[in-house]
C-alpha cells in the first residue's frame, strides 16, 4: 500500500480514538514548524503503543533474551546470527536489484555463495575476509529510493518504531522470503518457527545494553527513540555510515537501534 493511501485510514483511526496530537496554534510558527518536523501526528496513540511495548518487553522479550544469552556461549550465538543473516541474504539481494545497485548486488551474491559453501551453510562469516563486507537493505529503503515518503511516525508494539513506508517494506520483505511460501512439510514449518524465534532472540539480545542505556540516560526515551529511528533510517537509505555489519533480522525488533 502506498503511504499516501494510508493517510485517510490514519485520519479515521485518529478521529475514532481521539488520539491525535493537538497541533500548536498557527500564531506560533516555531511550534508549528517543530510539530511538522517531528512528523508524529498520532503521538498520544504512539505513546500508548510504546507503553504496551515496554510492558511486553519487560515481561517477555528482555527476560527471554537474557536466558538466550545465559544458555548459549558467544561463539554459538555468533554462529546463529551468521546463519540468520545468510538466510536473509536473498531479500537483501532482491532489494539491491530493485534499487539498481549493481555493485552491491554483486557483493551480496558473492557473499551468499561464499558463506553458504565455505561458511558451512552460513555458520561462518567468510565473505568479509574475501573483501565482501555485508550491508543491509530492505524494501522500506527501496520504496524510499523510489521516491516514496515515509508517512507519519508509528510505534508498533514488539516491532518498534516504524512508519507506513517501512511497515509496508517489512511486509514485502517477509513475503519475499523463500521460506515463507514453502509448506506441506512439518519439518520446514517448524524450521520457520525456529528461525522467527531465533531472529527475535538474537535481535533483542544484541540490544540489551543499548536499550538499557537509552532508558537509563534519557529524559524521554520515546522521543529519543523516535529521533534516533528517523536519523538511522535516513542514513540507511543513503547507505551512509556503514561499518560492514550484517543485519540478521531486517527491522530490529523493538528499537530501530543498532547493536
Amino acid at each position: 500500500m502506498r503511504p499516501t493511501r494510508m493517510f485517510p485510514i490514519l485520519v479515521v483511526a485518529c478521529l475514532g480514538l481521539a488520539a491525535c496530537a493537538t497541533p500548536p496554534p498557527a500564531s506560533d510558527p516555531e511550534s508549528v514548524a517543530e510539530f511538522n518536523a517531528l512528523n508524529d501526528p498520532i503521538e498520544p496513540l504512539n505513546r500508548v503503543s510504546y507503553g504496551v511495548h515496554n510492558a511486553i518487553d519487560t515481561l517477555a522479550l528482555r527476560p527471554a533474551a537474557e536466558i538466550y544469552r545465559t544458555l548459549l556461549a558467544p561463539p554459538i550465538r555468533t554462529g546463529i546470527r551468521n546463519v540468520l543473516s545468510n538466510l536473509r541474504t536473498p531479500v537483501v539481494l532482491l532489494n539491491d536489484a530493485l534499487q539498481g545497485e549493481t555493485q552491491r548486488f554483486g557483493t551480496t551474491l558473492g557473499r551468499f555463495v561464499l558463506n553458504t559453501m565455505l561458511g558451512v551453510g552460513g555458520i561462518f562469516e567468510v565473505a568479509t575476509d574475501f573483501g565482501l563486507p555485508p550491508h543491509s537493505e530492505d524494501f522500506g529503503q527501496t520504496l524510499a529510493v523510489w521516491g516514496a515518503g515515509e508517512g507519519p511516525f508509528l510505534f508498533i508494539p514488539v516491532l518498534g518504531p516504524s512508519n507506513p513506508r517501512d511497515l509496508t517494506g517489512f511486509g514485502v520483505d517477509l513475503a519475499a522470503q523463500p521460506l515463507t511460501w514453502i509448506s506441506g512439510s512439518t519439518a520446514l514449518e517448524n524450521a520457520m518457527v525456529v528461525r522467527s524465534v531465533a531472529g527475535v532472540l538474537d535481535a533483542r539480545e544484541g540490544l540489551i545494553e543499548p536499550l538499557d542505556t537509552l532508558t537509563a540516560n534519557s529524559l524521554d526515551p520515546y522521543a529519543a527513540l523516535r529521533s534516533a529511528y528517523r536519523q538511522r533510517r535516513a542514513a540507511d537509505i543513503s547507505n551512509r555510515g556503514e561499518t560492514g555489519r550484517a543485519d540478521a533480522t531486517g527491522s530490529a525488533i523493538g528499537s530501530g537501534l543498532r547493536r
Partner: peptide, 19 residues
C-alpha cells in the same frame, strides 16, 4: 552509526519542555 547525539538530545529535551 548515523545518529547524531545533539539532534537526538534536542528532540528529547524539546519534547520534555513541550509536554
Amino acid at each position: 552509526e548515523g545518529t547524531s547525539l545533539r539532534l537526538t538530545q534536542r528532540s528529547e529535551y524539546s519534547s520534555v519542555i513541550t509536554r
